[in-house]
């Protein structure tokens, strides 16, 4: 198992390399550059800036220069936030995003699994229908609607929680709820479906036929099998949640890394975009690995060697 994990991580190196190469050149294909403004800079100034950031070199040279720095663990300076390196920006923002996304994920898992299981056990009852209806609603309403609505109701009208900002523990509540709601809905639906299927399976019939108490039948024999599809969903979902959400961070004014991706791309802040891409890619690789290992831990038919 350990050997498998190490092999998978080694296998991720070429993947990351491809992601980096592809993003690097793709970004350079986009017209414009980091120093294009409405008011054009003086030619001499622009030339100096380009020289300082090596933008006057041929693109392949810039590419190898970037790779060289990356190999030494240097993500380079931000082109727009002049006094910061990309490391500093991501180092400050990532803990915020992880804290928000991680909390949202945990809450979504707990509530989503609970709702999904209850709905499955009461299949086709009003409980089931209301869970499904709520879940469908939760998936369809976009976060750019939920976020300002929550901010308005709980922040402005009721003044129960901060409407935005990042300065007290209470600041986490509304963003976390916004992030968690669609995940709760998705997880509830997944768990409901897989639990219903598991309850109909032959081995659950066997457990019932052998007089095992209902709680044991459900928890031991149905739910463990029902978890498996949710776990494969959780890999990419966790990677997406932990690397921040541009909408939630912008609306609640949070210092996470989600907004860097969009802002960086719009500003042609090449190094910042590359840094964000690398973080996301690493998260995706790591969480997919975790999912596969969890799968093997839960299902003895899955073996890696």
């Amino acid at each position: 198992m350990l050997g498998y994990a190490v092999r998978r991580l080694l296998g991720a190196i070429p993947t990351l390399f491809l992601v980096i190469t592809f993003s690097f050149f793709l970004m350079r294909v986009a017209p414009g550059g980091p120093f294009d403004r409405e008011r054009t800079l003086e030619a001499k100034v622009l030339e100096n800036l380009n020289r300082v950031f090596h933008l006057d070199r041929p693109i392949w040279e810039q590419y190898f220069y970037y790779l060289g720095n990356l190999a030494r663990g240097d993500l380079g300076p931000s082109f727009i936030y002049r006094d910061f390196s990309v490391q500093q920006l991501l180092g400050n923002g990532l803990p915020v995003s992880i804290q928000l996304g991680g909390t949202a994920l945990l809450i979504a898992l707990l509530i989503g699994s609970l709702l999904g299981t209850i709905a499955a056990l009461r299949q086709n009852s009003w409980v089931d229908y209301s869970v499904i209806a709520t879940a469908t609603f939760g998936i369809t309403v976009p976060n750019f609607v939920v976020a300002p609505l929550l901010s308005l109701i709980f922040g402005v009208w009721l003044s129960l929680l901060p409407a935005g900002g990042w300065n007290s523990p209470g600041s986490m509540v509304l963003p976390v709820v916004t992030l968690a709601l669609p995940q709760i809905a998705i997880i509830a639906r997944l768990i409901r479906g897989s639990t219903i299927e598991a309850l109909r399976s032959d081995h659950v019939r066997t457990a019932r036929a052998y007089g095992l108490p209902t709680r044991m039948v459900v928890v031991v024999h149905a739910l463990r099998a029902a978890c498996l599809p949710v776990i494969s969903y959780l890999g990419p979902a966790a990677a997406a949640l932990l690397t921040g959400s541009v909408v939630v961070e912008t609306i609640f004014g949070l210092p996470g890394i989600g907004r860097y991706f969009v802002q960086g791309a719009l500003n042609r802040d090449y190094t910042l975009v590359m840094g964000t891409v690398i973080i996301i890619a690493v998260f995706v690789v790591v969480f997919n690995l975790i999912v596969d290992l969890l799968y093997a831990a839960l299902d003895p038919r899955v073996r890696y060697d």
Binding site: D202, T206, A209, Y210, G211, A225, P300
Partner: peptide, 24 residues
């Protein structure tokens, strides 16, 4: 009923592949 099924009356089924829980 659970005092009787699995103790006094027991069953075996057709599908030996699926009647046992694959996870235990």
């Amino acid at each position: 009923l659970n005092k009787i099924r699995g103790a006094r009356i027991t069953m075996i089924f057709q599908e030996p592949m699926t009647s046992l829980d694959p996870l235990y």
